[in-house]
Design a protein around this nucleic acid. Sequence first.
DNA 1: AGAAAAAAAGAGTTTTAACTCCAAATAATT
DNA 2: AATTATTTGGAGTTAAAACTCTTTTTTTCT
Lengths: 157, 157
Amino acid sequence: MYIFGVLNGNMISNTCKYGIRAILYIAVNSDGEKKIGIKKISEDLNLPGPFLGKIMQTLAKNKILNSVKGPHGGFSLAKAPEKISLYDIVKIIDGDDVFHECLIGVKICENNPEYTNLCPFMEKSHKVREMLEKTFKEQTIGEFAKGINSLDEFLQI
Amino acid sequence: MYIFGVLNGNMISNTCKYGIRAILYIAVNSDGEKKIGIKKISEDLNLPGPFLGKIMQTLAKNKILNSVKGPHGGFSLAKAPEKISLYDIVKIIDGDDVFHECLIGVKICENNPEYTNLCPFMEKSHKVREMLEKTFKEQTIGEFAKGINSLDEFLQI
DNA sequence: AGAAAAAAAGAGTTTTAACTCCAAATAATT
DNA sequence: AATTATTTGGAGTTAAAACTCTTTTTTTCT
């Protein structure tokens, strides 16, 4: 769907999508204590293992995950799943530009936290985008996990 | 704002942003008949000329622009600016996945035009995303152009 | 007809996101 | 203490988006 190449809907990077899916997997499959390893997660979710490893590292550094090395090691959630929002993960991995940046990239919209003097489209769209941001902030991993019925639902397109 | 590299808000590709800005530039600076060349547009908007050329080609192929070769040639809008929406341009250049694709990339949400059996987050977010799509559809180039006060407002971040 | 000015087309290069590989560190088990 | 299973860290490679360069085609003007 991209004139000069591939590109699919790119609102959230693959890196970030993988991170979210992995965290959901842990929330569903661990009681909060049990550690789950990258090998198992990447096999079950069909994600590139070594790459997922990097993502998990950054989530661990950012206090979303706990990690333990060695036999029986792996990752577990560092907080209650109800305390982790999708926004938290997006913020860490992609940043929050996607919710704030001018959609057509014009100068006057930037560095404008008060939303004054916006381009005409930013004027019309910034409220919808704030709603989108709110949707990410209100969606917790805990609630999401409850709504998942089967492993199949995690799988990549 | 990206863990492993750069990445800014990537909802709309740069290619598409350049296309939108160039069309706006034409809408503001041409009466509808006058042709404007890539050289002038790219210099004034501070965009890479040859790359913008490619983008203009695809917009011309898709009946958004008229192009005329040779001296006094250049590009003009192929329709009334009120008949061109931002959505039209996004659809041509990036595709519309950005409005429909599952935000965390899970399988069950795909090929689901009726929006049945969605993942819990898609369930909660698809209405906001439809609003976003509507915002793009309702924003015409004509109306946008009226709201622009100076060339400066076009310029890239 | 010839020259000049523009877009079109094709084949590149560069940069960045996505992904891999390997060695080192750490922790548990025997 | 040695072995094994795991994460961590660093340095790569690959693929796709972004961008460039050069040649060809078309049109206008003299």
